[in-house]
Amino acid sequence: CSLMPKTNIKNIADMQTAAELSHWTARGKMMIATNNEKVSGYFYWQQKGDNFEFSLNTLIGINMFELSVNDDEAELTIDGKTYYGHTAEILVAQLTGYQLPISQLRFWVLGVQQSTKNNLKTKTKLDEKGRLKHIEVFHGDAIWQIDYQSWRSVMQFDLPKSLQLKSPNNRIKLSITDWALQG
């Protein structure tokens, strides 16, 4: 079930927690490492409810890939070719070999833990300010460990500045250098 209604944008001022955010833009640097390869680039991530646009670019602004989801239709553009699928995670895995926890990443990147029924044995640790410090959760067919290194205050929220996500064969490092909250 989706946490947010699809279209209407709540007024940020009325929001208590980042979990209520549904329309935001994040920019920064991302690394995806597998056992034998490290790829990194600058990302632009525009979330709109359950839909999003994500692009990863080189330091001189050349696009590496673009991923977007619009009403359950996933679209991935790489090397000038566009591929379609229903689930972004499967599409990315098929075309790049990367197992990325995309459906959960949108919450983890906000420093929010979405309580879903199937991962009851989730382990979470909070820091002294009650913010997420470590999550261990079963996602897809792997255990993901998420560690939050630093935070930044944006409006009334504390949002992650740097976090790392590890699964047995993938490591993702995110440094979020810019947040823009729309609603």
Binding site: R27, Y42, Y44, Q46, S55, N57, L59, G61, D178
Partner: peptide, 13 residues
């Protein structure tokens, strides 16, 4: 400043 074809600012450095 990196801008896409829809003039979204993708990156600044």
């Amino acid at each position: 400043r990196v801008v896409d074809s829809e003039l979204n600012v993708l990156h600044e450095a």
